[in-house]
Design a protein around this nucleic acid. Structure first.
Lengths: 245, 245
DNA sequence: TACTCTGGCTTGTTTGTACAAGTTCGCCTA
DNA sequence: TAGGCGAACTTGTACAAACAAGCCAGAGTA
């Protein structure tokens, strides 16, 4: 562990322990440098970590102050569409509309850590809540998992669960990007909305627990059907999908 | 603007422009230092900004690679609009288009923990990135903070920061709801898009650190201008692993 | 041919120095 | 007493140097 990480960890513990209560001033960088026998730059890297976690704030010229003392460590796991739907009391169903192998694009190669041109499996799925189409899923699977995916039932309810049961694969969700886009003609036809109407798009890369990329997906929700919700942002990020309200 | 922000901005432009396509290698720090006639530390600050935005990734020993070319707002650090914009090297500006007191609605009373009919301050703001309108903010402030808000400069860059400096108020973000909606006629006019075009909506309630509600806001981002990102980090860096190890 | 290994390159960490810019607080003056 | 001013302090930015750690390709070897 790097020196600045040790210092950050030490300061974080002190804050959580209450040595520096919320609103209190942190010692100056010079004093911390003296205390830890480190250069000021090293101390700055340490407090930069804490600032990134939202624990402390700073303004040029004034002493740093403690903003919070909550440990972030997010357990919040994003569940699969089917798991989520079931927990909300909805019946989820889905259909594979098309599926095929092709060489990956350069951007897919980067996202999935593949060699340029390596083969991937592209799947287009339509998913429904209580029979009503709400989500178009365009997923690209890395070549090594493709055979297992192709063996799945096209109307399979939970891909996540099936893959767990068939090959013991446990998903760990990586990064999610959320924005709004206009429905293309294919989106519009599948979701039963007009072309150009707003969709909530979630792009994500899913990995194995070891960090090996499995799939990259572009999911588009019909407006009004689903809302993403986040609580308490300075600390954890429990992201939760909600049915339209 | 600081030197490292200029360099970051320049590199960001180059990436967005496609000079460095996704998957490409960025020049080494030494080369960038030479090109910009800056010290290596300064260049590192610049690329650290880009890395924080998710635009580039890095592994010790290997050249930095371009991961994406879109701006995104990380939930891990849901700062104010101005803070976020500044951290990305953009210049944020804003204008209050209308502002006035009125009795609160029943739903506002619940969200802000007010008595039904209590007075609130409703503010409509248009916010810009580098002069371009990207966000319509409809905010309702609780009555007790209204005087401080009304004293603010209508073109004030960061409301959060101003309120912190004037009355020592530190925001703690509560719950955020994110979905997609169609632009209404007012939204369309202000953002310069067509009516019905997709907007990314973020509804939030902000509280003091003690949990007292301060404001309730309905923010609508122009599609394509902003992406929200969530990183669910089970392992540190899923983006740098290569297949086969 | 296939494999290993080494040397050069690149990023990560740390130290030290210097100045700029903003804050805070006490002193001095009107 | 109220207000202005400035000195000391604190954080922000920038430069320079050195070594550690990891990556990669090409040279050399079996």
């Amino acid at each position: 562990m790097a020196r600045y990480e040790q210092i950050a960890s030490d300061l974080r513990d002190a804050i959580v322990r209450g040595d520096y209560p919320i609103g209190a001033q942190l010692p100056s960088e010079a004093e911390l440098a003296l205390r830890y026998a480190a250069a000021r730059g090293t101390v700055r890297q340490a407090v930069a970590l804490l600032a990134a976690e939202g624990l402390v704030g700073s303004r040029q010229g004034a002493r740093r102050i403690v903003l919070g003392s909550e440990r972030s460590q997010s357990f919040a796991e994003l569940h699969s569409f089917a798991q989520w739907a079931r927990s909300m009391g909805y019946r989820a169903s889905g259909t594979v509309l098309s599926s095929g192998r092709r060489p990956c694009s350069p951007s897919e190669a980067v996202r999935l850590s593949l060699e340029p041109g390596e083969e991937v499996l592209a799947v287009l799925r339509l998913r429904r809540l209580d029979g009503e189409p709400v989500l178009v899923e365009r997923t690209v699977y890395a070549g090594w998992i493709a055979p297992a995916v192709e063996r799945l039932d096209p109307d399979c309810e939970s891909v996540t669960q099936e893959l767990y049961e068939s090959v013991g694969l446990v998903f760990a969700y990586g990064e999610h990007l959320i924005d709004a886009v206009a429905a293309g003609s294919e989106d519009a036809r599948l979701l039963g909305v007009r072309r150009g109407s707003p969709l909530l798009r979630q792009r994500r890369v899913t990995t194995t627990q070891e960090g090996r990329p499995v799939e990259s997906s572009d999911d588009r929700y019909r407006a009004g059907s689903v809302t993403f919700s986040i609580r308490n942002s300075t600390a954890a990020n429990p992201l939760v999908r909600r049915a339209g309200d």
